[in-house]
Design a protein around this nucleic acid. Structure first.
Ligand SMILES: [Mn+2]
Ligand SMILES: [Mn+2]
Ligand SMILES: [Mn+2]
Ligand SMILES: [Mn+2]
Lengths: 152, 152
DNA sequence: ACAAAAATGTAGCACAGGCTAATATTGGCG
DNA sequence: CGCCAATATTAGCCTGTGCTACATTTTTGT
């Protein structure tokens, strides 16, 4: 069973946003804005867990972008309070960043497990969950969790 | 039963892209690049079906953006061969645009029906399918279709 | 017919997120 | 120790996608 508690904060805003038909596309745009942030903090968290520290090159490797792009993106993450960096030092997560990373990991994992439970192949589930995870509302997450449980 | 034939072209490229682990995030980025295009041609097609013609204001209303943003976006669509426009005239789809619109509609509809069949509420299914649709590979679409059929 | 309203177009701005090239720093190794 | 490779920074570029303010054109209603 997954803990979904950490996911609630941002997604509760989403509930409000989704309330009216007008906001359909606004929510999708808002999802996109947070998507890179979520993927980055998730990756940073995993790299730190794996390798001890996270350097810009690791992220460049992971996301297949130049290290310059990573630098600028990490700059935005710092500006927005998700990470702290000092020149030439490894990237670290703030407590806010850590919380977002955990919530994103849980949600990502749940979507992945759901796709697998549905019968999607491993490779496809891994790829599709990467894009889908950011667009799944809490209600749908709960339904996915229920489906996973029912398959056991 | 849905016809999925029209979807195959772009998504077959995706299969190749998804082949290696390296390309995970590249595919997600590529999905994002085509996402607005898909939503626009889909909307244009629907507005034409509903109202006879599609004007920039209709799209501005639909996507909740300014008409200037619509203008620039439609300009890119024209550049890329999906629509034709003349000053002060309604927007029309090229045959390529029409084909993409049909394929996107089918895929969107399938994802929506899948979420409903799963047990997600109408409002949430409508909102979530809007974001999810662009990140679902052909394999997952087939699995979703199978699930829908099995629920009948 | 013509004024007002609606629609469209244009200019100019901002920010996100890509890039290459050139420069600077750090850390490890011979 | 000093040099080299790895890493990070900076400068400067691009495209996409959003905006406001203002100008123009078309449509509509009396
Ligand atoms: Mn997306
Ligand atoms: Mn993720
Ligand atoms: Mn992702
Ligand atoms: Mn969509």
């Amino acid at each position: 069973m997954h803990k979904l508690s950490g996911i609630s904060t941002k997604l509760q805003q989403d509930i409000k946003l989704a309330a009216t038909k007008q906001n359909q596309h606004k929510r999708t745009r808002s999802d996109h804005a947070t998507e890179l942030t979520e993927d980055y903090v998730e990756a940073i968290s995993e790299i730190i867990a794996d390798a001890g520290v996270c350097r810009a090159v690791d992220l460049a490797q992971k996301f297949q972008v130049s290290h310059v792009t990573v630098n600028r993106t990490v700059g935005r993450l710092q500006r927005d309070g998700y990470v702290t960096t000092e020149p030439y030092a490894p990237i670290e997560l703030t407590s806010v960043g850590t919380r977002l990373a955990k919530a994103s990991q849980e949600r990502h994992q749940l979507v992945l497990e759901f796709l697998l439970a549905l019968g999607v192949s491993n490779a496809t589930a891994i790829t599709d969950s990467e894009g889908i995870e950011h667009h799944v509302s809490p209600e749908t997450l709960r339904v996915m969790q229920k489906f996973i449980d029912s398959q056991k």
